[in-house]
């Protein structure tokens, strides 16, 4: 048996609950029960079927680890949402199993931000079925921005546009999120996460990495900040004093920077 065929076929068994059930129900008599497999793959499946009492431990362990990995994904990319969900006493292992069945027991491995992003998308899509309130979904969306930020920097910080003549350019290390609730109540008092009701008020957040090695931060920003981030000023001399103060703040937060050859 070629090792790579064994490994790839074994991975299919690990992930496919229908195939596992077929093996379990037809041990010793699998011929004709397996469709869409090559002869070499069937040989592998039969080998595992012969010792399925042992192999089932591999499968059970795999599923147990994956169920826990759902929580790890949230802890890595959306720790505030995880805390809020725990405060709401939702059944996270049950959520995890539903998610994993929807995603065919996929092992995301070290791609934890992608995993977290898919979990957030799924929780949002299943909001009604999972009975999640709007404020939690809002918090998930805020944290999704931080996940997007990390994912966008996966290959490093994009280079500055060489053609630009602007005084100020983006660092490419921040994103903006507009909430539908006063999330700041929860961000300021983490012990309230998921426990208190939030007003339906729009807030603007800067999601930013202060440095490439630091953890991201959230800062409440005003409308002028968003304008400056969206359209960095070409000529700082054209800005009034309040705008210059806002600009300085955004530079100190690492959302914007002065163009390197234009100090």
């Amino acid at each position: 048996m070629k090792a790579q065929i064994v490994w790839n076929t074994w991975r299919r068994i690990l992930r496919d609950e229908t195939l596992q059930a077929t093996i379990l129900a037809n041990k010793g008599n699998l011929s004709g029960k397996l469709e869409g497999f090559s002869a070499a793959e069937i040989e592998v499946i039969e080998a595992y079927a012969d010792d399925y009492d042992q192999a089932k431990w591999f499968v059970e362990n795999y599923q147990f680890r994956l169920v826990n990995s759902f929580i790890n994904a949230l802890e890595t990319g959306a720790p505030l949402s995880l805390r809020a969900l725990m405060a709401k006493q939702v059944d996270l292992p049950e959520f995890s199993k539903k998610f994993l069945r929807d995603h065919e027991w996929r092992d995301y491995g070290p791609y934890v931000y992608s995993y977290c992003k898919d979990v957030i998308i799924w929780l949002t899509k299943e909001q009604q079925a999972l009975n999640l309130d709007d404020a939690i979904i809002d918090l998930l969306a805020l944290e999704e921005k931080s996940v997007d930020l990390y994912l966008s920097l996966r290959d490093g910080v994009p280079s500055d546009d060489k053609a630009t003549t602007a005084d100020i350019v983006t660092t490419n290390m921040s994103m903006v999120y507009q909430s539908k609730h006063r999330l700041s109540d929860w961000l300021r008092r983490k012990s309230d996460l998921g426990k208190t009701e939030l007003d339906t008020v729009c807030e603007n957040y800067l999601v930013v990495l202060p440095t490439l090695t630091a953890r991201h931060k959230y800062s409440l920003i005003n409308k002028r900040s968003i304008e400056l981030i969206t359209t960095p000023p070409q000529d700082c001399n054209q800005l009034d004093t309040p705008s210059l103060q806002v600009l300085d703040k955004l530079i100190s937060l690492n959302a914007l920077k002065r163009r390197e050859d234009h100090a």
């Binding site: 090792a3 490994w7 499968v59 362990n61 795999y62 990995s69 092992d107 995301y108 491995g109 070290p110």
Partner: peptide, 24 residues
């Protein structure tokens, strides 16, 4: 163990003790 872009299938996937796998 075997593993390809993965974490959690690894503990369930010991490598094959074959001559070809020694070389690879």
């Amino acid at each position: 163990f075997y593993g390809d872009n993965s974490w959690l299938d690894i503990w369930s996937s010991p490598i094959q003790f074959s001559n070809d796998e020694i070389v690879r």
